[in-house]
């Protein structure tokens, strides 16, 4: 199916603004280059040649939180790191999403002890949890695609803060 069939002779397509905005958001989502531990290496693998996350409009990892709209918490979050993580999250501009990558970020994983935050959802609100220790790059990509599905369903009225 070519685009002409959709556009018709007039070259016009009608859609809702919500759909367009959400489409734009999903297709250029810039994740923050935020590696913590083992999962960061798998996140790098996901960026590298074999898995190539740029197919999903995500080749641009931004080191600065102020230029990114997705935080992939890749690894265990220690009690010392938690305030830093929250601060980085607060610095990100709206709208912003969080993926908790791996078991440690999701629920503490094998580290059930004094030093590790038992799930990063105690520090920042999480949209998608990716299981695995560490998750394979495919699993991360699946998590990202799941997030896209979520973003596509977002309504403007939900984004307005009370």
């Amino acid at each position: 199916m070519g685009v002409e069939q959709k556009l018709g002779n007039l070259g016009i397509v009608t859609t809702t603004l919500e759909t367009t905005v959400n489409w734009a958001r999903t297709n250029a989502m810039w994740p923050m280059l935020f590696g913590l531990a083992c999962c960061a290496i798998e996140m790098m693998s996901a960026q590298a040649a074999d898995y190539d996350m740029s197919r999903f409009g995500m080749e641009l990892m931004r080191p600065s939180p102020r230029q990114s709209d997705l935080m992939i918490v890749a690894g265990r979050v220690s009690r010392k790191m938690a305030p830093v993580l929250r601060r980085l999250y607060d610095q990100m501009p709206e709208p912003k999403w969080v993926i908790a990558m791996g078991d440690c970020a999701s629920c503490g994983g094998v580290f059930n002890n004094y030093a590790v935050v038992q799930g990063v959802d105690e520090v920042v609100p999480v949209d998608v949890y990716v299981a695995g220790c560490p998750p394979r790059p495919e699993a991360l990509i699946h998590g990202v695609v799941t997030l896209f599905e979520k973003v596509k369903g977002e309504k403007f009225k939900d984004l307005v803060k009370a």
């Binding site: 629920c107 503490g108 059930n112 038992q118």
Partner: peptide, 14 residues
């Protein structure tokens, strides 16, 4: 933390 009288800090898993 590594003293033996310091608790491990175990939280109940869900």
């Amino acid at each position: 933390p590594l003293r033996k009288d310091y608790p491990l800090g175990y939280e109940e898993p869900q």
